[in-house]
Measured scan of single mutants.
Amino acid sequence: NQASVVANTLIPINTALTLVMMRSEVVTPVGIPAEDIPRLVSMTVNRAVPLGTTLMPDMVKGYA
């Protein structure tokens, strides 16, 4: 099973992502692959992402 990116904290809308905000976890449904974490750093989220939420491609500006 592939690990996905999961919010390690509440990420407010329009926040630039940092490494400490994200962790990898095997979850269903599958979200952004964990190997993309380095690429996500400094990208911003377009909605509030609660703790434990899987990051989906449409949640990160410029990812999809």
Rank of each mutant, 00 (worst) to 15 (best):
R47A: 14
L55P: 00
Y63G: 04
N14W: 10
N46I: 11
I32Q: 00
S24G: 09
M22C: 03
V60D: 02
E25V: 04
T44K: 05
E25Y: 06
A7M: 03
P38Q: 11
R39K: 11
K61H: 12
G62S: 09
N46Q: 09
V6F: 02
I11Y: 00
R47W: 09
N14A: 10
A34S: 14
N1D: 15
I37A: 08
T9P: 02
L55Q: 02
V49Y: 02
L40A: 00
N1W: 08
Q2E: 15
L51W: 11
T53N: 13
L55S: 00
V30N: 13
S24K: 13
P50T: 10
V45P: 02
I11P: 02
G52L: 04
S4W: 03
A16F: 13
T9R: 12
N8E: 07
T28W: 04
P12I: 04
A7D: 01
I32K: 00
I11M: 04
D36I: 05
N8S: 14
L51T: 13
I13T: 08
P33D: 08
S42T: 10
E35Y: 10
E35H: 12
P12Q: 08
A7Q: 01
A3L: 10
V30A: 09
V27H: 03
M59Y: 14
M22G: 01
N8W: 04
M43N: 05
V49H: 02
A16W: 06
L40C: 03
L19I: 09
S4Q: 02
V41S: 03
Y63D: 03
V20P: 14
R39F: 11
S24V: 13
A64K: 15
R23S: 08
T44M: 11
M59Q: 05
M59L: 08
S4K: 00
V30T: 10
N14M: 14
A34K: 07
L40N: 00
L17V: 04
A48P: 15
A34H: 06
L10Y: 11
K61S: 12
P57C: 05
G31D: 00
T9K: 12
Q2C: 10
R39V: 07
M43E: 05
A7G: 03
E35G: 10
V45K: 00
P50K: 12
